[in-house]
Design a protein around this nucleic acid. Structure first.
Lengths: 183, 183
DNA sequence: ACCTGAACACCGTTCAAGT
DNA sequence: ACCTGAACACCGTTCAAGT
């Protein structure tokens, strides 16, 4: 009984932390852990109990978004040739870059290997699949791996200001072209 | 007289700070300002007098390297067509990525506009010149500016570990291809 | 078990006091 | 004028004390 109420307290705290963190990261684009704890109305220690690292919190924040990108990669690959799938997937990433800057930080290779998400596998696996399919059909150069792609995509998280929207489009366009085989 | 000795003190301090910072950044790849002051044997305030921002110190550290890259861009452009010049310039950047990781941080757009260096003009100007020439000869796509290129090059500063060398080559190859017009 | 928040460590930045 | 280094502010992290 007390046991159960304790658990609901903990669950409640965890939910409040995530909610507060999401609000902060969406509005300020920075994530100060103590500020998260304060906004969530919990002690700093509680934050650490639930999320031992900043990365763990980021993953939790964007888990569903990342998973969406992962499943989208699989879906696109099932419906289109690899080149088109990759192109459309980049469009999706661009969309996320526009609305949720924070997702991009979670995509970076350092974090990515931890991002084994829940269901569909990691984002690294998804990119690997698209690249493999592209290499097989001859549309994508065969000397590049998923880690390269995620690393190159990192420019998205350094975009800032009003030119961000066009910058996303231009940068992704360059990368997509660069990943293709020369005709 | 005292005036002059003061000046030599100040100059000496400045040189010691730069030397200490270079040693630290080369060995540890991190730059803690208080550590620099301590290693240089000066007070923190002295560090701030000479270099009001961390960026100012980085620029000083890599001034000659950046300037070399800038003049190299002009030289290459004078001797080759734009496409070749850009390609060879990327090779040069790759070489710097291999030996001096820190230069790359100084290339990032945020810092770049301050990097008006001494002589040849900023690195942004140099890239702009190469891009313009490439657009004129039709080898480089015309919707990309220097800021885009420098931003995309940022992946270099996030490379780490043993695969860095091949990662540099692969990433730059993708970017170069992506910047070219499709045949 | 879980939580709180004081306390510590660390690093950048400022400034009063020296020469 | 220039320098020193104590002091402050800030933020991440830990832990003794509570319930």
């Amino acid at each position: 009984m007390t046991d159960r109420s304790r658990r609901s307290d903990a669950l409640n705290n965890r939910a409040r932390i995530v909610e507060a963190a999401r609000a902060i990261v969406d509005s300020t684009a920075t994530l100060r852990l103590n500020a998260v704890a304060k906004a969530a109305g919990v002690g700093q220690g509680t934050l650490y109990r639930h999320f031992p690292t900043r990365e763990a919190l980021l993953i939790e924040l964007y888990h569903s978004d990342v998973e969406l990108l992962v499943t989208a990669a699989h879906d696109l690959l099932a419906r289109y040739d690899a080149d088109t799938a990759l192109s459309k997937w980049f469009d999706l990433v661009a969309e996320y870059a526009r609305i949720k800057r924070g997702v991009l930080a979670a995509l970076q290779p350092t974090d990515a290997h931890t991002l084994t998400a829940g269901g569909a596998g990691s984002i690294g696996d998804a990119v690997t699949l698209m690249l493999s399919a592209g290499k097989a059909e001859g549309s994508i150069r065969d000397d590049i791996d998923a880690r390269d792609v995620l690393l190159l995509l990192g420019f998205l998280s350094r975009l800032e200001g009003s030119d961000a929207v066009e910058g996303v489009t231009r940068g992704l366009s360059v990368l997509l072209d660069g990943l293709r085989t020369r005709s």
